[in-house]
Every structure is written in C-alpha cells, then in structure tokens.
Amino acid sequence: MKPVLDVNQLTMDFGGLRALDHIDLQVHPGEIVALIGPNGAGKTTFFNCITGIYAPTKGDMFLTRPQGEPKRLNGLKPNRVTERGMARTFQNIRLFQNMTVLENVMIGRHCRLHTGIPGAIFRPPASRREEKEVVADSYAMLEKIGLTRYVNEFAKNLPYGAQRRLEIARALATEPFLLLLDEPAAGMNAQETKALDELILRLRSDMKVSILLIEHDMKLVMSLSDRIYVVDYGKKIAEGNPEEIKSNPAVIKAYLGEDIDA
C-alpha cells in the first residue's frame, strides 16, 4: 500500500538559517509514527511546512487517501490541506478561547458542511438538517474523547489536560485520515499521559486514522510508535522502530551531547 504521507527532500530556509535539511519521511496506513529530536531541531517547522503554514524552500509532499491517488500538497493553503484529510493540533494550545467546547468542535466540522450566507439567512430544510447534524456529530465526537461534561463551558475555562484533548477532538472533527499531534502530552501528569496513550491507540483502531506525532515524553513515544524519526539541527539522523532508535549511537549523542564518550 502507498504511504498516506510521503515527504521527499523537504528543505526550509529562514533567511540564512536552514531549519529543515532534505528530510524524507513516510507514514503508512494505520501507523503511529513519532518525530523526535532535541528542542529547536525543526520538528514544529516540519509540521508547519506540511500543513501549508510555511511554504517550504524545496521538496515534495504527497498525501494519499487510503484507496486513493497521491495528491501533491505543495503550495496548498492550510485549509485546503485540512480538507484533503490531514488535521493537526498545536504545541501551544490554540483553541477558540471564547467559544464553548461544543462550538470548538463544530468549527472542526466547518469544511465538511455547505451552508452559505443565503442558507444561513433563509434556513432551507437542507441547512436545518445540516445544523442538526453538526450538533449531533460534534457531541458524538466529545463523547468519544470523553469531554461531554464540559460541553457548554468556554474553552478557556477547561483544565489543561482537557484543553489538549479538545484540540484533538476539534482536529478529528475535520474527518482526517492522518492526524498530526504536536506534543500532545506536554504539561500532562503521568495519569493523564497514560489516558492519552490509550486514547491515541483507540483512535487508530476505532477511527482508522494514521498518526504522526511530535513528543518529548520518551516513555510515551516508545510505547506508542511503530516507527520513529529522529531529527537534529534540521537533519534526519535516524529512523527505525523503537528498539533500533534506543540503541542508535547518533541518537544518544544528539540527546546527551558530545561528552558521551568521556
């Protein structure tokens, strides 16, 4: 089967600084892939490039819907990328703070709905039906992620862990087949992290999404991932399954510094 995400030779320059240097990366259907590396290695830049927030300097990116044809992502705006079936969360939570939890998820549904301005004003039966469905679907999504008790709360009033999960719910509402998670466990305690671990596995089995995640919590990464990519200073320094990565000298060096031999 073709990989759902296929990134070739992705390069990103900021002025004179090369933030990403010829990165290759694939995510296959049903896989959980982790992208790890020290702070400032270019992981979030990688996400921003493939989701269309930045325009990469060089390289190709293809997204392939299961049983579909590969579609090139280069030059697409972020909203188009999302429409094609790849959704993301943000490292520093970016919820719509003054909207309710339900509304946040409903925004995720936006690109799958059709009501325009005339529809909103005159409310023909199709729009009414759509509006009913979006409420029901969004609520169902909250049930899956376990956030129903906050349904009418403002997003800004949620506890931290719940905000992270709401971001995931909102991204899932766009019906992705590939989900990008940017440090989903950041700031979570051990118990919350464990719940997140289970949630991610459940998403893969129940919702048939492939997952690419950036994460610093190595325990989580090692237990979840099928494969791991390691980047440092914008370059890919290793790739493989968790066992291989654990014993890879280049990775150990990147994480622990030059002094490892001394």
Binding site: I53, N79, T82, A87, R94, I107, H110, C111, R170
Partner: peptide, 11 residues
C-alpha cells in the same frame, strides 16, 4: 479568536 488555528481547521 485565532486566525492560524482557524485555517488549520479548514476554514
């Protein structure tokens, strides 16, 4: 509320 997130959600 948030332009970047808004776009990333397909708007």
């Amino acid at each position: 509320e948030d332009e970047v997130a808004c776009q990333a959600m397909g708007i």
